[in-house]
Simulated scan of single mutants.
Amino acid sequence: MSELGLCSRREADEWIAQGWVRVDGKIVAELGSKVLPQQRITIERQASAEQSKRVTILINKPMGYVSGQAEDGYKPAVVLVNAESRWQEDQAPQQFHPKQLRSLVPAGRLDIDSVGLLVLTQDGRVAKQLIGEDTSIEKEYLVRVKYGKPGQLPEADLKLLNHGLSLDGKKLLPAKVRWQNEDQLSFILREGKKRQIRRMCEAVGLKVIGLKRVRIGNVKLGDLPTGQWRYLGADEQF
């Protein structure tokens, strides 16, 4: 069910337990049941209705908040999601309700000292799309840097940032890295290793002064103010 993009693995477990899943018309109530390629999986309406209530939230994360669980005394970004901090220009028809905070998890990391677009979702399909093993969705960052040597970063090192670096003994996927102005680079990545951009920059003698994520796939941060949030619109897709 997860591989077909119907839901997340956790949702699949819940739906099977509720009796909302059929294979070739017969209800399957046992977790881990085998399904043959030619068999047809159908979902009861209750599951679809339940899924449609699940929200995806876009937040402009400020510095000093962690993406997921609270750690080292720092608060998670989800504490910023409440009725008062919703962006006034959000056009989505949903009304905020505290139950939307249940199972609201980050779909991807943004370091404590990084800012910008963070996705929090209750929808396993969105999480799989953004952080699944086979995701190819681009993430764009604006990165303010300082070069540790005299002069400017050599062109050969800029090429290395685009392709040729390795982290933890593994080659990085090709990236798109270019200068925005004399001290700011644009990074477009299709992967998200821990502190990847900072470590890439260190490898060529650059120190990151500031890092902001401005786009995930087709969804842009836009004018969303720092510390505020909005719903992912029904017409928006990553």
Rank of each mutant, 00 (worst) to 15 (best):
M1I: 11
C7A: 07
S8T: 03
V23M: 01
K26S: 08
K26H: 14
I27R: 15
E30V: 15
G32N: 11
K34I: 06
L36K: 14
L36S: 06
Q38T: 13
R40K: 15
R40N: 15
I43D: 06
A47D: 01
S52Q: 15
V55H: 03
A70L: 07
A70P: 15
Y74Q: 11
K75E: 13
V81T: 08
A83V: 10
R86N: 13
Q95K: 12
P98I: 08
L101S: 07
R102T: 10
S103M: 07
L110H: 01
V115C: 10
L118H: 05
G124W: 07
G124L: 03
A127T: 15
K128L: 13
K128N: 15
L130P: 07
L130E: 00
D134T: 12
D134P: 02
T135C: 01
K139T: 08
R144M: 12
P150R: 05
P154A: 02
E155Y: 11
L158G: 04
K159F: 01
K159S: 02
L161W: 02
S166R: 06
L167Y: 01
K170S: 05
K171W: 03
P174Q: 01
K176E: 09
K176H: 15
W179P: 12
L185D: 03
L185H: 07
K193R: 15
Q196N: 01
M200D: 01
C201T: 04
A203L: 04
G210N: 10
V214N: 06
I216Y: 01
I216N: 00
N218L: 12
T226L: 07
W229Q: 01
A234Q: 13
Q237G: 15
Q237L: 13
F238A: 09
